[in-house]
């Protein structure tokens, strides 16, 4: 799966989690840039991504997510591992 496709798939998740349609996903975007993106929203995003892409994050991977770019990277890696 290409990064571009992953960004496209993530957009509605962010839209739903924050109930806003004006969030533009970029690799650098992180919690400090979006009002209300706290640790709870972070977990909501993680679980929504897990259910959308059909995998579970490794506990270690959860600790490496600092921004949207990290999230896209982990999704890409897990998807390619699935084959």
């Amino acid at each position: 799966m290409q990064d571009e496709a992953i960004y496209t798939a993530l957009a509605p998740i962010f839209e739903d989690v924050f109930m806003r349609d004006d969030i533009v996903l970029t690799p650098e975007l992180s919690a400090k840039d979006v009002a209300g993106w706290d640790s709870f929203k972070q977990i909501e995003i993680i679980i929504a991504v897990e259910s959308q892409f059909g995998f579970k994050f490794h506990t270690r991977e959860l600790d490496t997510l600092r921004n949207v770019g990290d999230l896209v990277r982990v999704v890409r890696e897990k998807n390619s591992a699935k084959g």
Binding site: D16, V17, M19, E44, I47, A48
Partner: peptide, 11 residues
Amino acid sequence: DFSQTNALDEI
């Protein structure tokens, strides 16, 4: 689901 629940609550 939880995400819809949270969204409705927010609104």
